[in-house]
């Protein structure tokens, strides 16, 4: 059993009702667990929503997180992913300069493109594995990004 603080992705299916998100975030803060990122959206044609929570902790902590989540009344299922496909999106705002083509080419390498061109700025979108998104964000610092938004990860078990 490893005691290192590993990054973990947990998916949670919840009844789509008032205050269900606070129940989950309260549980994390109240028991001293971390949330690295969290995404929520309704599951089509159902009364449920799906949350993807990226967290970190030892095997024991992650086991407690999943058990404690499951104890909450409006929670249907909790998956702790081992083998998964994970994607994250990022939007980046750049000042317009001579580098548009460079930026566009770079975005393409990360499943993205320029999605909006304004008078002074362009907005680029990329969608890839969270690790690759980090890489991308490192690389583009040289183009002086003005603003960066990350969506947080979503995941599906293989």
């Amino acid at each position: 059993m490893t005691e290192s603080n590993e990054r973990r992705v947990v998916s949670v299916i919840v009844v789509n009702e008032a205050s269900v998100l606070s129940r989950i975030t309260d549980l994390f803060s109240g028991r001293g667990y971390n949330i690295t990122s969290l995404t929520v959206a309704p599951i089509p044609d159902s009364k449920y929503s799906r949350l993807t929570i990226v967290t970190s902790g030892s095997v024991r902590v992650i086991e407690q997180i999943t058990k404690q989540l499951h104890k909450l009344i409006p929670i249907l299922r909790v998956y702790e992913h081992a083998d998964l496909v994970e994607k994250e999106m990022a939007l980046v705002k750049f000042p317009i300069s001579d580098n548009i083509t460079d930026i566009n080419t770079l975005c393409e390498a990360y499943n993205g493109k320029i999605v909006n061109v304004g008078e002074n700025v362009i907005i680029a979108m990329v969608a890839d594995e969270p690790k690759r998104i980090e890489n991308f964000l490192k690389i583009i610092t040289r183009y002086n990004p003005k603003e960066i938004v990350r969506s947080g990860a979503v995941a599906l078990e293989r």
């Binding site: 407690q64 058990k67 404690q68 104890k71």
Partner: peptide
Amino acid sequence: IDPASISK
């Protein structure tokens, strides 16, 4: 009865 109490 509470799974969260086991191996906590």
